[in-house]
Write a protein that binds this DNA or RNA. Structure first.
Length: 426
RNA sequence: GGAAGAGUGGCAGAGCUGGUUUAAUGCACUGGUCUUGAAAACCAGCGUGCGGCAACGUACCGGGGGUUCGAAUCCCUCCUCUUCCGCCA
């Protein structure tokens, strides 16, 4: 959630940023409505505080009067408070309504993009900041897409998932399962090596948690919801891990806080269809190792670059062709200021698959998280939050299977062999 | 799931027969005095949000609601923790 103070003090920047995200001149009118709503909220609070102050004063007097034995005067004062109470009730409910009104508008504002974010409306406007420089791998005509390889080698069964749960719930088998586990361990070890502390968080979270990282209300339809216990299945480890530091005030020497965690991720993916959802391209449950950092605002972009480099290193070690995109204003997520997507080339499908998204949220998340730090001058300021996939498994497996297929079987990249215990799937 | 007890500021811990508690006190922390330096001692400061230039006002004693002129204190409800019982990887 954007800070109101930014709308007031950096109006021009905010407007410019919203335009990069595709906002029209007309939509910008909401900014004035927000300021007006906030002004009214302040005014209502001042009014209400005045009434409360009077009430507190009178109540104290009543106590003193009773002690002094002046019962009739006390009775008179009681009547006065009685009147005040009506005013307080009105002022308080008006204030509550105003806060809700304000929040409902504020929540519509996305984060303001970083100056480097290119304008644009869709994927095609994303800037390829680091293209794959070599030639893309060419496979023979007989090459198979990963869902057919899966059947051929009996390592993954999508139909079985349908039987057990529904479409989009893969069942890995044998070496497929082992490959899954190998990748998780490889990614976690690499993250640990890079200084991230490993976390095993809850996979279900409460409403306050989902709200703090912005899944609610923005992406409510994306999450599975357990009504009986009022819990949400996590769509990414980012949610529980970032929330570790909800309602926290950090000291400067605690930066940067680096956390990693493996979790399954659950996404309803309502409305998806076609080639996008074929095989492992888009599923309801997938495994992912996430990296999260909490950083000082002065250093967060440096940190973002480091995180991208970390993910890049993973792809290099897996010997997968990849490219890095700087997302345009129209494609960058609601909460992000700057996002790099890393895509892997899936040679049999002849398409790029997004396997990682690394973002700097600046203060957009920490504002809701109430994640702050105490500056040199003792002032409390919002910290910056960043996260990225390092990496998402399902699509990595899709690419690995396709790119590494040979007549004799699927070759496991060198870096992974000590984790799989085998060097070929045949 | 059942029963009993408990949830107070970074920590510990009073208050809980409703009104100088506008949350005592100790520890920790910060600044100062003293000291060659440190420790000790002494002095001062020290929670969070909102409003206000400020003085200050207001709210917060697990969450929510209620009673009352007035609630940390009484009542209801939910959550969490501890102990016991039940169930169970």
């Amino acid at each position: 959630m954007l800070e109101i103070s930014r709308i007031r003090t950096e109006r021009a920047k905010v407007e410019q940023g919203l335009k990069i995200k595709g906002w029209t001149e007309e939509k910008l009118a909401i900014l004035d409505l927000i300021i007006a709503a906030d002004d009214k909220r302040k005014q209502l609070q001042t009014e209400n505080d005045g009434y409360l102050s009077e009430r507190n004063k009178l109540s104290k007097e009543i106590g003193d009067l009773f002690k002094a034995g002046k019962a009739s005067e006390a009775q008179a004062a009681k009547l006065q408070v009685e009147e005040l109470k009506e005013k307080i009730a009105i002022a308080e409910s008006a204030m509550q309504a105003q806060i809700i009104e304000l929040e409902s508008k504020l929540i519509e504002l996305p984060n303001i993009p970083h100056p480097s974010v290119p304008a644009g409306h869709s994927e095609s406007d994303n800037e390829v900041s680091k293209p794959w420089s070599n030639e893309l791998p060419e496979l023979p005509e007989t090459a198979l897409p990963h869902w057919e390889l899966a059947t051929k080698y009996n390592i993954l069964d999508m139909k079985l998932g349908v039987k057990i749960a529904g479409a989009g719930f893969p069942v890995f088998i044998g070496k497929g399962s082992r490959l899954q586990r190998a990748l998780i361990n490889f990614f976690l070890d690499e993250a640990t090596e890079a200084g991230y502390t490993e976390i095993v968080p809850p996979l279900l979270v409460n409403e306050a948690t989902a709200r703090a990282t912005g899944q609610l209300p923005d992406k409510e339809g994306q999450m599975y919801y357990v009504t009986k216990d009022d819990l949400y299945l996590i769509p990414t480890a980012e949610v529980p891990i970032t929330n570790i530091y909800r309602d926290t005030i950090l000291n400067l020497d605690q930066f940067p806080i680096k956390m990693t965690g493996y979790t399954p991720c659950f996404r309803r993916e309502a409305g998806s269809y076609g080639a996008d959802v074929k095989g492992l391209n888009r599923v309801h449950q997938f495994d992912k190792v996430e990296i999260v950092q909490l950083e000082h605002p002065d250093k967060s972009y440096e940190t973002l670059d480091q995180m991208v480099a970390h993910v890049e290193g993973l792809l290099q070690k897996l010997e997968l062709p990849y490219r890095i995109l700087r997302l345009c204003g129209g494609d960058v997520s609601f909460a992000s200021a700057l996002t790099y997507d890393l895509e892997v080339y899936s040679a049999a499908q002849k398409r790029w698959l997004e396997v990682s998204s690394v973002s700097n949220f600046e203060t957009f998340q920490s504002n809701r998280l109430k994640l702050r730090y105490r500056d040199e001058d003792g002032k409390k300021r919002l910290a910056h939050t960043l996260n990225g996939s390092a990496l998402a498994l399902a699509r990595i497996i899709a690419a690995l299977l396709e790119n590494n297929q040979t007549e004799t079987g699927i070759i496991i990249p060198e870096a992974l062999r000590k984790y799989t215990g085998f060097d070929i799937i045949d």
